[in-house]
Design a protein around this nucleic acid. Structure first.
Length: 153
DNA sequence: GCCAACGTTGGC
DNA sequence: GCCAACGTTGGC
């Protein structure tokens, strides 16, 4: 099993929004970065777990956990001219962008703030705390994942 | 609201 | 294929 971190602006779509979605599940649309796309398309597997991170929030934090319940399939929002994530370069016969379905799993009793991640020496290699990192989908090691869980307890 | 980082676009 | 311009992300 692999571990991930998914970023979302809390005001746009929060972990609580996921919890309140039908079946506590939604499609993770709008990823328009090739590196993130490759993670989604090539490496995310059924049952993988992902930390749910709130960016542009007060404070920024890891709110809880979701899991991958459907592996990569074409991001259909890219085909829709009326959708804000529309991308004419992505064709139905040759999709450029992909999505997975994620399901709510757990809300941390003690959310793990970005600040506390930065202060934990064991987490200094996380991509989340590397300067200038803008990836919205990133891998997390098992050790890092478990350390975050410890901090959330 | 500012601005640094960085990915993408497009002219050449 | 280079690189400047531009747009976006995201922490502060």
């Amino acid at each position: 099993m692999k571990y991930w971190l998914l970023k979302s602006e809390a005001e746009v779509f929060s972990l609580n929004d996921l919890k309140n979605s039908p079946g506590q599940t939604t499609y993770w649309d709008g990823v328009r970065n090739y590196q993130a796309r490759n993670f989604i398309r090539d490496e995310m597997k059924l049952g993988d777990k992902a930390l749910f991170y709130h960016s542009n929030s007060e404070p920024n934090l890891i709110a809880g956990i979701c899991k991958i319940v459907k592996e990569a399939y074409p991001d259909f929002t890219a085909f829709d001219p009326d959708n804000e994530h529309y991308d004419p370069k992505s064709k139905k016969e040759n999709p450029a962008w992909f999505m997975v379905d994620v399901k709510w799993e757990e809300e941390f009793k003690n959310p793990v703030t970005l600040q506390s991640v930065k202060l934990n020496p064991k987490l200094k290699n996380m991509r989340l705390v590397q300067p200038g990192n803008r990836l919205s989908v990133m891998p997390v090691t098992k050790d890092e994942f478990e350390e975050i869980l410890k901090m959330s307890g």
